[in-house]
Amino acid sequence: MKTSPSIYRTLPRHDSQQASAVTIGNFDGVHRGHQAILARVREQAIERGLAATVMTFDPHPRTYFALRGQRPELVPTQISGLRDKLTALSAHGLDQIILERFNQALADMSAEDFIRQLLVQGLNTRWLLVGEDFRYGHKRSGDIELLRHAGQQYGFEVETIADVADEHGHRISSSELRTALAVGQLERAEHLLGHSYRLSGHVIHGQKLGRSIGYPTLNVKVPSQCALRSGVYVVRAHGLGPQPINGVASLGVRPTISHNGRLMLEVHLLDCQIDAYGKLTCVEFLEYLRDEEKFPDLPTMIAAIDNDVQCARDHFALHGL
């Protein structure tokens, strides 16, 4: 049975001198393109007797630079939060995940120091897989040529990978996936991911309004920059019982009842009363129903929820889930 990978937040590793087969990237969403990269790393690690290793960053470097430059509008949306990313990476037979904090020190690190401190001293890298356009180091000064030169000096091999395409020749990328999620195209997102889109979070206390109108909801905390379009969805909630529970969910800032503007996922479970406070649930998105709306009054909102619930029931009746 495969054990979970070791997760390191600092390099060099405190408990290992083992040589590594490494890939580096943000891996937001861990889509089919990422999965192809992870499979190649694992294959080479097994073949060469190395530790299969991913180095990823938190926060996303683009997020760091956007906030540092006081340009929040340039922060990329998040396909998955850190927990979901690590869970998805862990499912691909890795030995190590390096969660490198992207901060001022890393942003200022020269390309040569990036190679020497992180790849050589930090991971004892023997084989490295990166995208053809991979850049690293201060002001993105490092390129593939410098990596290959360093590889000759320090004894590691560099392999590059072009964009991964699907069976129709279309590029599979995080930006393609963000675009699909931004418009609520769940089928396209599923095609890019290889599975339905999911978000996990802990159930937290809400305003309890749902109970009073006959639609109790679970309030689930999601990433504030969530890539998925705000709106109402047919969903299934995993992890709250022995089987997934059918439901309908609203992702948004609850404009009719709340003014704090915080993004929240509210899940109403169909024909199920459950005390889930504090529990971790994984919500699977199955069908986009409608946009989030600001209703003039509660009766209008309740009528819309009645319709949403009926649409969800119709979905499950049709798909037999």
Rank of each mutant, 00 (worst) to 15 (best):
A52P: 01
V54P: 00
M55C: 14
M55R: 04
M55T: 02
T56I: 08
T56V: 04
H60Q: 05
H60L: 05
H60M: 05
P61G: 05
R62W: 07
R62F: 00
F65M: 08
F65T: 12
F65P: 00
A66R: 02
R68V: 12
R68T: 11
R68M: 12
Q70R: 15
R71E: 13
P72A: 01
V75G: 03
P76L: 03
P76G: 02
P76H: 01
T77V: 11
I79V: 14
S80Q: 14
S80D: 02
G81A: 07
R83M: 08
R83C: 07
R83D: 09
D84P: 03
L86S: 13
T87C: 08
S90E: 13
S90M: 10
A91C: 07
H92G: 03
H92L: 05
G93K: 06
G93W: 01
L94I: 10
L94K: 02
Q96M: 04
Q96V: 13
I97S: 02
I98R: 00
I98T: 04
I98P: 02
L99R: 01
L99N: 05
L99H: 09
L99Y: 08
R101A: 04
R101P: 13
N103S: 12
Q104C: 07
Q104Y: 13
A107E: 14
D108W: 03
S110F: 09
A111Q: 06
A111D: 07
D113H: 11
D113Q: 05
F114V: 14
I115F: 07
R116I: 06
Q121W: 10
G122H: 00
G122F: 01
L123A: 02
N124G: 15
N124P: 12
T125N: 13
W127Y: 14
W127V: 00
W127C: 03
L129I: 06
V130E: 07
G131A: 01
E132N: 09
D133P: 06
F134R: 02
F134K: 02
Y136G: 04
Y136F: 15
G137L: 04
H138C: 05
H138I: 06
H138L: 05
K139M: 14
S141A: 15
S141T: 13
G142M: 11
I144L: 13
I144C: 13
I144E: 09
E145F: 08
E145R: 14
L147T: 00
L147M: 11
R148N: 08
R148K: 11
H149V: 10
A150Y: 00
Q152D: 14
Q153A: 07
Q153N: 12
Q153G: 07
Y154D: 09
Y154N: 06
Y154L: 06
Y154F: 15
Y154R: 07
G155L: 08
G155W: 13
F156D: 08
F156I: 03
V158F: 10
V158Q: 03
E159C: 12
E159L: 11
E159V: 06
T160H: 12
T160I: 04
T160L: 11
I161G: 06
I161M: 14
A162P: 13
A162T: 11
A165P: 04
A165D: 06
A165W: 00
E167Y: 10
E167C: 05
E167T: 14
H168F: 12
H168S: 15
H170M: 09
H170C: 13
